[in-house]
Write a protein that binds this DNA or RNA. Structure first.
Lengths: 114, 114
DNA sequence: CGGTATCCTCTCTGATACTG
DNA sequence: CAGTATCAGAGAGGATACCG
């Protein structure tokens, strides 16, 4: 019994490490949010996130695509590359919204106490 | 109108960058979860997370304390240092649970497709 | 028990420039 | 427009040893 609790704990540790591996880093969450917000083109995403360079955007988009959180397709209509959420990643929209709230309130919390 | 949407977007970007700054890195989420799971002593936390060295644990605990996500107190009863969640961080327990689920299901998703 | 100190490596990130 | 190439700096993370 105590042992299975310990194993559960270690499983959760690994799952959390995976999670942070996939959405970690300075830009992945902002990029996902930008796409979620309607920006589907490279240039648009880049301009929607202050401080983000095209190099980091390129790299992070590639990693997000490898993890199947977004897709990259050439649009037949516009003839531009478009980035979109996958069905898979849409499930986690609310998780992201909570992180946004968390970041906002946390900033206030830390600022007011220093 | 379009402008305020853009500003909202940039605000969210910053909030998400803050969030990932505070809970980012390989070990912060596993550490928080371990404490949440009843481990309150340095040694216990260390042993509950495979691969975590005492050096990284020490550093990350300090940072989490600075961000007011945990407290570190000497217990009068046991005479050991104890780490606890703050009222503040308890609000985000469900956020962490979702990340655990996410990590678990994501691992399955990626493994099956390769 | 609960950490620090030191050293080392490797990845992330940024700045600048260039390309199909 | 949508990136890639190159170089350089900072810091996260790991290994090992030591301390009050």
């Amino acid at each position: 019994m105590a042992k299975s609790v310990k194993i559960d704990q270690q499983e959760a540790s690994k799952a959390l490490a995976d999670t942070i591996y996939v959405i970690g880093g300075k830009w992945k969450l902002p990029i996902l949010h930008s796409i979620c917000n309607g920006n589907i083109r490279f240039k648009d995403i880049e301009e929607s996130i202050p401080g983000l360079s095209n190099r980091m955007l390129s790299r992070n988009l590639k990693e997000l695509e490898e993890n199947k959180l977004i897709t990259r397709v050439m649009s037949n209509e516009t003839l531009f590359y478009e980035y979109h959420f996958t069905e898979y990643s849409k499930e986690y929209g609310d998780l992201m919204l909570k992180m946004i709230e968390w970041g906002k309130s946390h900033r206030k919390k830390i600022i007011q106490s220093t």
